Amino acid sequence: MRKFILILFRVVVSIISLVIIYLFAIIILPLFGVNNKKGEKLDDSMYIYIVTNGMHTDIIVPVKTDIMDWSKIIPYSDTKSKKHYNNIAFGWGDKGFYLNTPEWSDLKLSTAINAAFGIGSTAMHVTFYNDIYLGENCKQIKISKEDYKQLVNYIKNSFDLDSNNKVRYIKTDALYGENDSFYEAKGTYSIFYTCNTWTANALKHANQKAPLWTATQQGIFYHYR
């Protein structure tokens, strides 16, 4: 009995220690930034945006540029509206969370566990926009076209393509509006690699300011205050 209690005590202490280390990493690591380009002048440039709903971040880019026409990969017809738009947002995340949790009140323990520990699969949530409103939850980033090419490659490589190298559309009623759609994605979601980690890595690939590591949207927006 004493041996069992000792083992249980060590397990509890280990779990508490891991939680403390994780929380410490969430607070401290995002404070360290990479790719600080303050004051840099860009002659050949365009604009992209990062947006958050308070928990989850997306990257917004133009639908059509001389570098990429996203409508050839993500057709407008995949949305309910079928309309044409000027901008497109990409958000990577846990598939079960996306499709089974339209509201926080719908969150199930099984969905949370699968997402936290990398048990489930992932999806790309794509949303079309015309107007973009800057503010605390939406920041504009000036980016060179060469860096934008790197961002395009990162986003494209996050999709899980079919045998014909086409995005794999997810047919679902779990849409957020008239202008969005879901697709199969690569990678594994967990507490160590969240939707916000994906966004931060996208910025890193595009040589933009980003936290060293983050699991939260605050870690990203801290560098765009």
Rank of each mutant, 00 (worst) to 15 (best):
T122E: 05
K41N: 04
T65A: 14
H125G: 03
I21T: 15
K82D: 06
T111Q: 01
D69F: 11
H56W: 04
T79P: 01
L8Q: 13
I28G: 01
S71M: 05
I88S: 02
I119T: 08
I60R: 05
I15N: 08
F117C: 01
G118D: 00
I113G: 06
S110K: 11
M46V: 03
N87Y: 10
L107A: 03
D131H: 07
Y129I: 10
D43N: 09
G33H: 07
N100P: 00
D69T: 01
I15A: 06
N35L: 05
Y22F: 12
H125I: 04
F117L: 02
N100I: 02
D94N: 08
I50C: 03
I88W: 06
I119C: 01
I67R: 05
A89W: 10
L18F: 13
L18P: 13
I48D: 07
L109Q: 14
G39C: 04
K82N: 11
I26L: 01
F128E: 07
D78W: 14
D66V: 15
P62H: 09
D78Y: 12
L107Y: 00
D106P: 12
A123G: 00
V34L: 13
G93N: 02
S17R: 03
D44P: 11
L31F: 08
P30R: 03
T52A: 00
T65M: 14
K72V: 08
V126R: 05
I7D: 09
I113S: 04
E103F: 10
N130T: 08
S71C: 04
A89D: 09
K82T: 10
V61I: 10
W70N: 03
M68S: 04
M124W: 00
I28Y: 11
N114P: 07
K41T: 05
V126M: 06
K82G: 12
D106C: 13
W104V: 06
K37E: 14
I73S: 13
D131M: 05
F117Y: 01
T111Y: 05
N53V: 11
Y98F: 14
G39Y: 02
V34W: 09
A115E: 02
N35C: 01
K83A: 14
H56E: 01
K37T: 15
I88L: 12
I60E: 04
V61Q: 06
V61Y: 09
S110V: 13
T57I: 11
H84N: 12
Y47T: 14
I73Q: 12
P75L: 12
K37Q: 15
H125C: 10
I27Q: 08
Y85E: 05
F24A: 13
N86W: 07
I88F: 11
T122H: 12
T65K: 10
Y47W: 09
V19T: 11
E40Q: 12
L109N: 15
I26G: 12
K41R: 06
I20A: 02
L42F: 15
V126C: 03
N53L: 09
F128M: 02
F9G: 11
D78T: 14
Y85V: 09
F90L: 07
L31D: 02
F9H: 05
Y49S: 08
L109V: 15
